[in-house]
Design a protein around this nucleic acid. Structure first.
Lengths: 124, 124
DNA sequence: ATTATTGTATTAGTAGCTTAATACAGTAAT
DNA sequence: ATTACTGTATTAAGCTACTAATACAATAAT
């Protein structure tokens, strides 16, 4: 997953979303040590303060644990990981339907488009 | 469709999205006269300058026509309306799949969730 | 013990978004 | 002709996000 940002949203909140996704999808394994704030800031090409701000949010959610001098680790609680993953997915589904209905699409048309898109893309 | 904004994106760009949706979904009919900038600014509870900025974008896209002293009208070109509607829908579908795959969902899981959501919501 | 690395905090400057308050020119309505 | 309404432009102020440049305390590594 790439570190691409769109200009229309604050970077720190996009960082939160990206880091959450990397964690719950397993790209960062449960219990694994995360790169340091400075290191990740370089990787993502953002200011360390901005990365720090994103991590404050992840810390608040409980997805990461912080040891002041030895760095951060991903939570090892599998229930939390599953739950956050489901929440994020649910949010995407709801948002998708909300937007499509605003455009005037019916449930049937929406699922047809989804099935069509799934069959056209690379499998898995 | 309501005039609700989230804090994480510029209001003018959210206005563009809302106005586009109202137009291509038919809430604002083809050829119809639109409320004035000042009037819409009051309705949406934003500054007239912000609403003006949004309309500049719609004007640039060709979705509305501007008569300097008599106001704005929705385009009467049905092809343009259909095309923009499809573009917006396609964007939502693509974004939905992109985000779900980042979370580690397969095509099959994605379409299952979509079908499930469609059957649970109010029909149509 | 010394060094390097960790998270964290602070201060300053820049840029963009939004609001506010006007103002102007053209036209429709009266 | 006067009035009201149209889109449009300008200037100023306030706020937030972001970057930059440091600094400090705690700990791991040497």
């Amino acid at each position: 997953m790439a570190w691409n940002f769109d200009d229309n949203r604050p970077i720190y909140s996009q960082l939160v979303e990206i880091l959450e996704t990397k964690i719950v999808s397993g790209e960062y394994q449960p219990g694994a040590k995360l790169p340091s704030v400075r290191e990740l800031a370089i990787t993502a090409a953002v200011n360390p303060n901005t990365m720090q701000r994103a991590f404050s949010e992840l810390e608040r959610e409980g997805l990461v644990n912080t040891n002041r001098t030895s760095g951060r680790t991903v939570t090892e609680d599998p229930n939390m990981l599953r739950q956050v993953r489901s929440q994020l997915a649910r949010g995407h589904v709801d948002y998708f339907f909300k937007k499509m209905k605003e455009l005037g699409y019916t449930n049937q048309e929406i699922t047809s488009l989804a099935n069509e898109a799934a069959s056209k893309e690379d499998n898995q």
